[in-house]
Write a protein that binds this DNA or RNA. Structure first.
Length: 211
DNA sequence: CACCAGGAATGTA
DNA sequence: TACATTCATGGT
């Protein structure tokens, strides 16, 4: 199976991902939207999406769903607001670091001219920003052609035996091989993988081992 | 009550 | 390089 065939299969199963569960699928329109995606990228680390949305709601109600606010909010206050998403002490520190990083370079808009690889290196250098969180931000918030590999992607690759190389970059290479280098396509492809993964639920570890 | 969810850092061998 | 452990909440 090729990436294109897989994409068409998922599209035939689920249609366009635009009407689905999150802002990410609808494609952020404003800078406020993009900042929300950046915040969600951190909150969603090893967390249930329902809990992430609860934390997002609290931030919104406190008027803190913006990078500038997150950056200057007292640590304890930020921790309190995002508590439902879990790991709240870690995530508060990570969010703050990320928010301040963007503010120092003129916010989301200020990064527009910056080279993608360079930006990626800087993001990965921040505390708590690993490959997935980094690529979530690049692909969904900054609209760069960077394919996101997450647990759903890894699971699908295993279940369909798409490739032997299950490393982050290996999967990134497989899923983009022969495809247009287009952030819209990458967003939709990844969103479809998540939608599909959620709809099918998680197989038991035992079932996975038995293929 | 036990297990899990769109990770990442740290420590160990 | 390859695993194990830690961080923590709310849903099922």
């Amino acid at each position: 199976m090729t990436p294109r065939e897989l994409y068409r299969l998922l599209r035939s199963r689920h249609g366009r991902p635009s009407g689905q569960w999150s802002l990410w699928c609808r494609r952020p329109k404003t800078d406020a939207d993009r900042e929300q995606v950046i915040i969600e990228a951190v909150l969603t680390q090893r967390a249930n999406w329902t809990n992430v949305q609860a934390a997002v709601r609290r931030l919104a109600e406190a008027g803190a769903l913006r990078l500038e606010t997150v950056c200057r909010l007292p640590e304890a206050e930020l921790e309190h607001l995002i508590r439902p998403s879990g790991f709240y002490r870690q995530k508060a520190a990570r969010l703050r670091g990320l928010a301040c990083f963007f503010l120092e370079r003129g916010g989301v808009a200020g990064c527009r001219a910056e080279d993608t690889d360079r930006l990626r290196t800087h993001l990965l250098g921040l505390d708590g920003i690993g490959p997935e969180t980094c690529d979530d931000i690049l692909c969904y918030a900054l609209e760069r052609p960077v394919f996101v590999v997450d647990e759903y992607t890894r699971r699908l690759a295993r279940e369909l035996s798409l490739t032997d190389d299950l490393s982050y970059h290996g999967l990134q290479r497989w899923f983009t091989a022969g495809l247009r280098r287009d952030w819209r396509l990458y967003q939709d492809f990844h969103a479809l993988i998540v939608v599909d993964g959620k709809s099918r639920g998680r197989r038991t570890p035992a079932a996975e081992r038995n293929g």
